[in-house]
Design a binder for these strands. Structure first.
Lengths: 169, 169
DNA sequence: CTTTTTTTGGCATATAATTCCAATATCATT
DNA sequence: AATGATATTGGAATTATATGCCAAAAAAAG
């Protein structure tokens, strides 16, 4: 019987699982033998734990990271979008249109008076950006405003989600 | 001799490389045999290409994706930070302080009158957020303003960087 | 069309993943 | 502290995958 009640879908992890998550968030393609060695377990329980973390949905997938600049996408922008009406239809339509644009790396529905969505987009240059903004995004039904910020430098990116509870100051 | 001059570090890829990048950005831990099969090559040239993409720096790494909510981080926020002075020392100090906070998933230096940095942070709840904001971030030297947005829903996340040139409208 | 260069496919070998089970450790209870 | 029940581990055997090599095929250059 559990000593403490936590929401059903929030998991409790021991040190091995935390180490696994930590390492896999940095080195997603590390092999199991090396991973096992690093956490101080033999390969078979280590693999079982990784599979359990995947099956439980805690690890949702693996991604290769790609250097956008080397692919010719030298401009990254944050786009704040406001909508005229906050109806499910408006939102659903916007989201579908935006999902069809390959330049959109991320789309978040956010709070705030200034915007309803934040998009992160990558493009080749300012011309492409202008084109994307004026010919694609602002033409989506219900979009009343768009405010652009450009990413000058990526200070931190893809950092691991803490597997410990938050530090209480 | 190349027919066309492109910036030295921007690469040109054939269809196999593009397929590899596309697939690995979705399934970062796919095995080489499966990958080879999907792109229509035999395993050995496929692996050679993957290694070449890694060695060239086009693939910068691999990451496991973790469900933050399942780890107890139910609140994600975007924090726009403005600084008093735009000196290298101010920036370097801010960036170092922020890098020491495990809740910070991303930190971007951006253009715009409203903010100098955008942080993406994950916390357990609003109390933790308040604590992070008031006791940690706003206390960093030079921070004059902080503006919060909360993520209501992640519409799109971790989308692949397009490996084709931008669609010209 | 021929030569040169690059890339591929298949095979042999090395390395890693996976399964199974006995042994060990952990936990709750008395 | 001892007991029994449960969960977890480590190692060996097996299966699957990655890696290196080379001859053959393809692509590019002349």
């Amino acid at each position: 019987m559990p000593k403490d009640s936590t929401p059903a879908d929030v998991v409790t992890l021991d040190r091995y699982d935390r180490q696994i998550l930590e390492i896999l968030q940095h080195h997603g393609r590390i092999n199991n033998q090396e991973l096992a060695e690093r956490i101080g377990l033999s390969p078979s329980p280590c693999l079982r734990r990784v599979r359990a973390l995947e099956d439980s949905g805690l690890i949702t997938g693996y991604r290769a990271l790609v250097d956008a600049k080397r692919l010719g996408h030298s401009l990254t922008a944050l786009l704040h979008i406001s909508m005229d009406r906050h109806t499910p239809e408006r939102f659903a339509n916007f989201e579908a249109k935006v999902a069809a644009l390959p330049q959109v790396q991320e789309c978040l529905l956010i709070t705030g008076q200034e915007a309803d969505y934040q998009l992160k987009v990558v493009v080749h240059d300012m011309d492409d950006y202008q084109n994307l903004l004026l010919n694609q995004i602002t033409r989506i039904e219900g979009v009343t405003g768009a405010h652009s910020s450009f990413v000058l430098r990526r200070v931190l990116e893809h950092r691991p989600v803490p597997s410990h509870p938050d530090t209480p100051y």
